[in-house]
């Protein structure tokens, strides 16, 4: 095992996959010379040259569409969009074309496209550089959405995403890029669509996404001191979502809290809650609780932003409301 930072796990995954398969190329703004705004692509231009690592004009719509054509011709593009917020300027190629190309053209194509983008508030980056919009994309048939919380999951999931024959949106949280974690020395993959139980517990199931996993684990420590045992589940992949793991945990604990940094309204928490009610209502002993951001854009001013991001304390509060 070795210790590695969250951001370096991205670099290692890209490095290994680009070396492994000559059909893989990286494309995006400032990923070559700039090495990625969060240093995700460190050293890759120098190592692989500008055929494999393409710096683009600021034209997301063009290079997202380019990825579609390249995939049709058998390549495996890894597109970087810096901030998830910028996906809004290339929604047509992504949603109308990439996500539907296999379907609309009757299975003639596969779409092995990976899109990396950062999420998360906490850096004072404000309403255009902090959003968590995963629910939009999880709502689109044809796309897969990945949101890892640890360096181990980052590397294993990104490698799986690049090898997947479907378009995968790989969303990393920019505010935890320095977090360290252990990964094996040897190569490994983490399968898409498989949740991970980050901590076992008996009283309440807490499903937490991305950075919120860290908050949930902090909450777990505090709650344990008060005699409440929570089980923390990290779905890791939002679409396809591993409801099986979530439901089997709910059957054990009978209580569920869902935490995501995205705005609570219409977030993936609603989907998880609805599915649990549809499939396991008779196992619930309390109302399902959701913890998410308020229904506002992400504020810039530090006190506002701090209050905006869901915290361990909010998780504790939600758990206590239903843990009788």
């Amino acid at each position: 095992m070795k210790e590695i930072r969250y951001v370096r796990a991205i670099t290692e995954a890209l490095d290994e996959e680009i070396a492994r398969d000559e059909k893989v190329f990286l494309i995006g703004e400032d990923i070559g010379r700039g090495e990625g705004i969060f240093n995700t692509h460190r050293g890759l231009l120098a190592k692989y040259g500008d055929k494999r690592v393409k710096d683009t004009p600021i034209s997301e719509s063009a290079f997202m569409g380019l990825a579609l054509g390249a995939a049709m011709a058998g390549l495996r593009p890894v597109v970087d969009i810096l901030f998830m917020d910028f996906l809004t300027v290339c929604m047509d190629p992504l949603i109308n074309h990439i996500a539907k190309a296999r379907y609309m053209f009757g299975g003639q194509y596969t779409m092995p496209i990976t899109i990396t983008a950062s999420t998360g508030a906490g850096l004072g980056a404000g309403p255009h550089h902090s959003q968590c919009l995963e629910a939009w994309f999880a709502h689109i048939p044809g796309l897969k959405v990945v949101m890892p919380s640890t360096p181990y999951d980052v590397k294993g999931l990104l490698k799986s995403a690049i090898r997947d024959d479907n378009p995968v949106l790989f969303l990393y949280d920019k505010t935890i890029i320095a977090v360290k974690g252990e990964i094996p020395e040897e190569e490994y993959l983490v399968p898409l669509g498989k949740a991970d139980i980050k901590r076992e517990g008996t009283d309440v199931t807490v499903v937490a996404v991305s950075k919120m996993v860290t908050q949930a684990l902090m909450a777990a420590d505090k709650l344990a001191a008060e005699g409440i045992s929570i089980e923390v589940i990290d779905p890791r992949t939002i679409s396809p979502l591993d409801m099986e793991t979530i439901i089997s945990s709910v059957k054990k604990t009978s209580k569920l809290v869902i935490v995501h940094e995205a705005v609570k309204k219409f977030g993936i928490g609603a989907e998880i809650a609805a599915t649990v009610v549809e499939e396991a209502m008779d196992y619930l002993d309390a109302p399902i609780k959701r913890v998410g951001a308020p229904f506002t854009p992400v504020p810039i001013s530090p006190p506002e932003e701090k209050a905006y991001i869901p915290s361990a304390d909010q998780i504790i509060e939600a758990v206590k409301e239903i843990a009788s």
Partner: peptide
């Protein structure tokens, strides 16, 4: 205009 970029990608792949 939606698929003009696809053609660019096909040219890129070539």
């Amino acid at each position: 205009g939606g698929i003009v970029s696809t053609a660019v990608g096909l040219g890129f792949a070539a």
